[in-house]
Design a protein around this nucleic acid. Structure first.
Length: 969
DNA sequence: CAGTGAGCGAGCTTCCGCTTGACTT
């Protein structure tokens, strides 16, 4: 049963009005009080049960049990006709949400109801965070318990903590529940209002959302930076200096850092576009500034320094200490498993889930780095045992963190238990991914309780004067680690493509003193070029998501899966590359929904949710601002007039053609080279002599590799398809191609010879073409198939009465016969080649019929009874769009979940009633209205705006903007 | 991105977060 509630009632109070705390231990009859405890996770329930004993029954909700309906199919009949049914939120009535028990949770809910029957009290022990509070409230609303209810919270799963939590319960925090509900509704409104804009303007089935859209934007922006990047070259001198025979090591490396008063530029002086940063330019007033050496200068200097005296001008020694890293939380685990083990975040989470369920590690979806006291003791004990006292930190280390949106409902991820099993201990039980991940968690946890690594860093500067007069300074630094501390147990891996040094890397310098003379064993001019910012890997992207506070531990992996599934991003090795569609979508969002893809949007939302949780703001007030707008307060989107207005205005204003055109650069003739995102994938276009020139873009070409050079190459490749062979009759080559209307075969005609003295080129003859039949595919079509297709239309014969020729051909709506302007559909494609004149004439004898099968009317799939409301006989028929029920006047498609065999008369009647409610007008008016609507949406759709037909039906704005654009194209 | 003649039941796609099995290949 779908439990629907529109809006909250006063029943959201716990303990049924009772205020007794702590709860009593016995019933009036003297029997011990039995309590049902509901947690979120089944394995947590198993773990807690023994701590609480026989008077408690511990069950789990397995996450959320109710949610907004996913789509129309989930909406209970009662609300189907409502204007807000699509959203599942009654925006005009206090944003009342419609909650239904999630289909897969129905059995969980009935199990919980059953368990509730035998207890005297209910303890809602869901996680101590916003979502957990909401789950508790949903349980209360759904189970409607008759017994007292209390909220139980704990942050640690130990016997004492659990027992204490059971004794110190509280009431449900309605404000916190409100904050969660606000978050849920905001996400629904954002996702379900903005996604349809993308369907109309870019492509069907695309999606937008608070988390995925910003994440996609990050990847697109990085690619844009890479495209804009221009590599810069800078030089310095790498010297090998000799400290004399006594020194160890005798020689060491140093680099030129200064010439006269100017600092020699290094990679850090260049920005993300590869250009010298403003602050580093000589004109910035920063002393004598920075000098970028070129090759000639570097060589000249190196030559001028040959054999010159060098001397140590300063030696600076500083202690090096490095603190251990905090224990893992979800994001850092995914990052390190990605870097060290090369696991995708999904693979990491799958493995972690197994380890958790089998009792090897603590809960794996957490944003906390906190360890329980017993875990700290266990880690210290094990570190002591393995590495000795000196390696264990003097005092227990606790890692608190203040990170955006942290809810900290769980512990850090660590080995489970009061004492840890070493990887060796579990090697027999666990292998593969799970073993390697456990080892990682174990090492990191142990290391977190160990001592700092200590050592020394030494910075040396060496001066000299070149024969040509310049004074130069070389620099060198060394790091020695005298006490490795935690590094002995665990070293974090450095990101791919990062210039950072691992924490345990050492480099030794000899003992040097100020004034000490040195000689240069080698002076090598050294050229460098700046490199573009590297692409995101999954771990790197998750790190940024976490820093921006977008997404939650339970969703990092699934968000990445979503943007992969939608085709916004694809993987090249471990790098994430944005698709051209992503460029279109992000471009649209930035231009028209800028507030929604602002990197700070979630952070601001979290602040606002906090004020709802603290009671300073209300759910309805906030949502009103977000959806309907508010002038003086609230988010940027509220000031912009609210989401609803924005979506409406943008549907009219956004020009699909502009959105789906990504101008890359201008070619040598100053023509814009544009990537167009079309229905059949992206292609390149430019206007040459007033004509559009197009080229296919290879699927595997990352946007930043589309250089001018490559573009020229692509343009020069003829639009060729797969060659099938040569037509023996004409000698023309036959190819199969993907076209605007799907796959087709065509012949390649030889270039016509231009007769001498001819002023104009002769008109090009048109090649024969033919769409593939349904039974054929681009991959498997043969030359024989192609020749058959090219032989169409086939002359079937002449109508003896009129003398008109009857032909069989393949058209827009499939195979058909044509006689003048009169046509008849053929039942199957094979008939194109086999139908005889007699059969054709037989077909023409029958009047043109709609919905006909092979001449006879299609029998219904199933007969139903009479519609109780109209007393009309109902039948189920099969149509173009699948089975539908009809009473002769109204037709209604069967929905998801309806089956032809099991459809009841009641359900059929309901479907018909719904259909009637939607289109109450009479036939004629319905037709005109539908036509109008169709041409309107056609005018704004990406697909049609590129097709010729819509020229007349495009909106004024589209037309003007296209007209304006034409000259530049 | 090829160009080829109808008339007609469309309905669905999509969000973020919280949790695991029960399905089939």
């Amino acid at each position: 049963m779908a439990a629907a509630t529109a809006g909250k009632t006063g029943s959201a109070r716990t303990s049924g009005g009772s205020t007794r705390t702590p709860t009593s231990t016995a019933t009036a009859s003297g029997r011990p009080v039995r309590r049902l405890v509901i947690v979120e996770s089944p394995s947590k329930a198993r773990k807690i049960q023994p701590y609480l004993g026989d008077d408690y029954v511990v069950e789990s909700s397995v996450g959320h049990i109710r949610d907004l309906p996913r789509g129309a199919a989930d909406v209970p009949a009662k609300y189907k006709g409502e204007s807000w049914a699509r959203l599942g939120v009654d925006v005009d009535n206090q944003f009342s949400p419609l909650y239904i028990v999630t289909p897969e949770k129905k059995s969980t809910v009935s199990d919980l109801r059953e368990a509730l029957k035998s207890v005297d009290e209910l303890l809602l022990a869901t996680d101590p965070d916003r979502e957990g509070e909401a789950i508790a409230w949903h349980l209360l609303e759904t189970l409607k318990p008759k017994v007292p209810v209390r909220r139980m919270v704990f942050h640690e799963i130990t016997e004492s903590a659990i027992r204490a939590a059971a004794e110190n319960t509280r009431e449900l925090d309605q404000n916190l529940v409100d904050a969660q509900e606000t978050r849920r509704i905001l996400d629904r409104l954002y996702g379900y209002e903005v996604s349809p804009v993308l369907w109309k303007k870019v492509m069907p089935k695309l999606s937008a959302g608070r988390v995925q859209s910003v994440t996609t934007r990050l990847v697109v922006q990085r690619e844009r930076d890479r495209i804009a990047f221009r590599s810069a070259e800078y030089w310095d001198i790498a010297a090998t200096l000799d400290a004399g025979a006594e020194a160890t090591p005798r020689t060491f490396g140093a680099r030129l850092v200064q010439v006269d008063d100017a600092r020699v530029a290094t990679g850090r002086d260049f920005d993300s576009l590869g250009q010298l940063k403003k602050a580093s330019r000589p004109s910035s007033g920063d002393g004598a500034g920075v000098v970028v050496l070129n090759e000639a200068e570097a060589r000249r200097l190196a030559d001028g320094l040959q054999g010159r005296d060098l001397a140590v001008t300063s030696v600076e020694s500083k202690p090096y200490t490095r603190k251990p890293y905090p224990p893992f939380m979800t994001s850092t685990l995914q990052q390190e498993a990605g870097r060290k083990l090369r696991f995708s975040s999904e693979r990491t989470m799958r493995s972690a889930q197994r380890l958790y369920e089998n009792g090897y590690i603590t809960y794996m979806r957490t944003d906390s780095t906190t360890l329980s006291d017993s875990a700290i003791q266990a880690a210290r004990a094990q570190a002591r045992e393995l590495y000795g006292d000196a390696f264990v930190a003097d005092k227990p280390r606790q890692y608190t963190r203040k990170v955006k949106n942290a809810q900290e409902a769980h512990e850090a991820i660590r080995p489970a238990g009061e004492s840890f099993r070493t990887p060796g201990d579990i090697a027999r039980e666990v292998d593969g991914d799970d073993f390697r991940l456990y080892e990682l968690v174990w090492q990191r946890t142990i290391a977190s309780q160990m001592n700092d690594a200590r050592g020394t860093t030494v910075s040396v500067r060496i001066g000299g004067t070149a024969a040509t007069g310049e004074s130069v300074v070389f620099a060198s630094s060394g790091r020695t680690i005298t006490f490795p501390g935690f590094l002995k147990a665990y070293v974090e891996t450095v990101d791919d493509g990062s210039s950072a040094q691992a924490d345990d890397a050492e480099s030794r310098l000899p003992e040097l003193t100020e004034g000490q003379a040195l000689t240069a064993a080698e002076l090598n001019p050294d050229g460098h070029s700046t490199s573009p910012p590297s692409r995101f890997t999954e771990p790197a992207l998750i790190k940024v998501m976490e820093e921006l506070g977008i997404g939650r531990p339970s969703t990092y992996a699934s968000t990445i899966k979503t943007i992969l599934d939608r085709g916004y991003v694809w993987k090249k090795g471990s790098a994430l590359v944005p698709s051209w569609v992503a460029f279109s979508v992000v471009g649209l969002m930035e231009a028209h929904f800028g507030q929604l893809v602002d990197y700070d949007f979630t952070a601001e939302m979290e602040d606002d949710l906090d004020s709802i949780a603290s009671g300073d703001d209300s759910r309805v007030h906030w949502l009103n601002g977000f959806y309907f707008g508010a002038e003086n307060r609230g988010s940027e989107i509220a000031k912009a007039g609210g989401l609803k207005k924005l979506v409406g205005a943008n549907l009219e204003e956004i020009d699909a053609r502009t959105i789906n055109s990504i101008t890359m650069f201008t070619d040598a003739q100053d023509r814009d080279v544009v990537v167009r995102v079309g229905r059949y994938g992206p292609y390149l276009e430019r206007i040459v002599d007033g004509e559009s020139q197009r080229a296919n873009l290879p699927d595997e070409l990352p946007p930043d590799e589309l250089t001018e050079e490559i573009a020229e190459k692509l343009f020069s490749v003829p639009q060729e398809g797969r060659k099938l062979g040569t037509d023996p009759e004409t000698g023309h080559e036959v190819v199969v191609k993907e076209g605007r209307f799907g796959p087709y075969v065509t012949e390649l005609l030889p270039e016509p010879e231009v007769p001498e003295g001819a002023k104009k080129k002769p008109a090009k003859p048109k090649p024969r073409t033919g769409s593939l039949l349904k039974s054929m595919s681009v991959e498997t079509v043969t030359l024989a198939d192609a020749l058959k297709l090219l032989s169409l239309p086939r002359v079937v014969g002449k109508d003896p009465e009129s003398g008109d020729e009857i032909t069989a051909q393949n058209g827009r709506y499939g195979p058909y016969l044509k006689k003048g302007t009169d046509s008849r559909s053929l039942a199957d494609e094979e008939q194109l080649f086999t139908v005889t004149l007699e059969e054709a004439l037989e077909l023409y004898k029958q009047p043109k019929q709609r919905g006909r099968g092979r001449g006879a009317a299609q029998p219904p799939l199933r007969e139903l009874g009479e519609d109780p409301s109209t007393s009309k006989k109902m039948v189920i028929k099969d149509g173009r769009f699948g089975p539908y029920v009809t009473d002769g006047e109204t037709n209604a498609s069967l929905r998801k979940g309806d089956s032809v065999e099991e459809l009841t008369d009641e359900r059929a009647s309901e479907l018909l009633a719904e259909r009637r409610a939607k289109a109450p007008a009479k036939k004629t008016t319905t037709t005109t209205r539908r036509t109008a609507a169709a041409s309107k949406s056609g005018g704004t759709s990406a697909r049609s705006s590129t097709a010729k037909k819509t020229g007349t039906s495009t909106t004024k704005k589209t037309t003007t903007s296209r007209a304006r654009k034409t000259p530049t194209n």
